[in-house]
C-alpha cells in the first residue's frame, strides 16, 4: 500500500514501512528475517481488521474519497476487456469527466458508462474532479440509447462529488440534463446495473444510477448531500461534518437496509485501495450474478421491474 494514508490509517503505515525495511535488509544483507516479517504481516492484518471494524461514518466518507482508491478506469481495465471509448454528446463537446464506451464482460458486449475523478493534479483538472457538466450526462444518455438499440446491457460506474455547479453548467441546463436522464433511464428496454464504486454524490450520481440493480462497494457512500454541505446548512458550521455524516446514514449497510441498494460488494481487508485486483474480482463476481439474472427478463419486464422498484421508494404513512 503506497501513497497517502488517512489519519486513522497511520498506525498501519508504520508497520508497512517496517516490513519494507526488513525486506530490504533481508535481500541486501542476505539475512533470514522470514519469522520477523511474518509476525509483522500478521500484526498488520489484525490491526487492519481492528481499525476497519470501528470505522466511523465520516471515516467511511474519507475512504470513499481515498486518493489511492481504484477509480473507474482501474475497474474498466481489469473487469472488462476490449474497452473502446466513445466520445461526445453530439451537441456541445466531449466531457472527459464521463468515460464511456463499448467493452466486453465475460466475453459479451456491454456498454460501460463511468465517472472518472483523476489521479494526479493534471488529470484531476482534465476530469474536472469527476464532476460532470450537462454534456457529460447527455453523452451518457446518447450511449445508453445506443446500448438499447443493440440490446446490450449497460453498466454504470458511479464516483462523483456531484454534478458540477458552475455558470456554463447552468447555462446549458444541468437540471434538465439530469432530469432527462432520470426519465429516460427508467424507460430503457435493456438491463442496467449501476455500481457505486466510491462517492455517490447526489443528483450527479443518480443521473447514472437508475438501474434494475444498484450495487455499492463496501466502503463507498451514496448521499443526497455531502456531509460538509449538510453541516453548513443544518448546523451552520461545516466543521460538524462528523455529526452530519452520522445523521445522513450514507454508508453501504444503511443503504442496503433502506432497500436503495440491492447488494454490497465486499472489499478486501484494508479497503479497495489496499488491493485493486481483489476489489475488481469481487466487483466482477457480483456484477456477473446480477447480469445473469437480468438476462432472463424481456425488455418489457425490465422496464416494469425498474419503474416499480423506484415507485416503491419512500417512507410515509396514511
Amino acid at each position: 500500500m503506497n501513497g497517502t494514508y488517512l489519519d486513522f490509517e497511520r498506525p498501519l503505515q508504520k508497520i508497512v514501512q517496517r516490513i519494507e525495511e526488513l525486506r530490504y535488509i533481508a535481500t541486501s544483507e542476505d539475512l533470514e528475517l522470514h519469522d520477523e516479517i511474518g509476525k509483522l504481516e500478521k500484526k498488520l492484518i489484525r490491526l487492519r481488521e481492528d481499525i476497519y471494524r470501528k470505522i466511523t461514518p465520516y471515516q467511511r466518507v474519507q475512504l470513499a474519497r481515498h486518493p489511492n482508491r481504484p477509480y473507474s478506469l482501474d475497474y474498466i481495465n481489469t473487469v472488462f476487456e476490449d474497452f473502446l471509448e466513445l466520445h461526445g454528446d453530439r451537441q456541445f463537446r466531449d466531457d472527459p469527466s464521463i468515460v464511456a464506451g463499448w467493452a466486453r464482460f465475460e466475453g459479451k458486449p456491454v456498454m460501460v458508462i463511468s465517472q472518472q475523478k483523476g489521479r494526479d493534479t493534471k488529470e484531476k483538472l482534465y476530469r474536472n474532479f469527476g464532476m460532470a457538466h450537462p454534456e457529460g450526462y447527455r453523452k451518457a444518455l446518447r450511449l445508453m440509447k445506443m446500448a438499447e438499440k443493440f440490446s446490450r446491457p449497460i453498466i454504470t460506474l458511479i464516483d462523483t462529488p456531484g454534478a458540477y455547479p458552475g455558470i456554463g453548467a447552468e447555462e446549458r441546463g444541468q437540471a434538465e440534463a439530469i432530469a432527462r436522464n432520470l426519465r429516460e433511464m427508467a424507460m430503457l428496454k435493456t438491463p442496467l446495473v449501476a455500481v457505486i464504486i466510491g462517492e455517490g454524490g447526489s443528483g450527479g450520481a443518480l443521473a447514472l444510477g437508475v438501474g434494475n440493480r444498484v450495487l455499492i462497494m463496501e466502503n463507498a457512500i451514496y448521499s443526497v448531500i455531502s456531509p460538509e454541505g449538510c453541516a453548513s446548512i443544518l448546523w451552520r458550521d461545516d466543521g460538524e461534518k462528523e455529526k452530519s455524516a452520522v445523521a445522513l446514514k450514507l454508508d453501504a449497510a444503511s443503504l442496503k437496509e433502506f432497500g436503495v441498494i440491492d447488494e454490497i460488494i465486499p472489499e478486501p481487508n484494508g479497503g479497495a485501495h489496499s488491493d485493486f485486483s481483489s476489489a475488481a474480482e469481487s466487483l466482477s463476481m457480483v456484477l456477473a450474478k446480477h447480469l445473469k439474472q437480468l438476462s432472463r427478463l424481456s425488455p418489457e419486464e425490465l422496464v416494469k421491474q425498474r419503474t416499480e422498484k423506484y415507485s416503491r421508494m419512500g417512507e410515509f404513512e396514511e
Binding site: 426519465r183 424507460m187 443518480l206 445522513l248 433502506f258 419503474t307 421508494m313 419512500g314
Partner: peptide, 20 residues
C-alpha cells in the same frame, strides 16, 4: 436532506412516473 437518500430517490421516482 433530513430524509437523506430517500429524498434523492424521489427524483428517480417522480421522473420514472413521468417517463410512463
Amino acid at each position: 436532506m433530513m430524509e437523506g437518500i430517500f429524498s434523492l430517490m424521489q427524483m428517480a421516482k417522480t421522473s420514472a412516473c413521468l417517463g410512463r
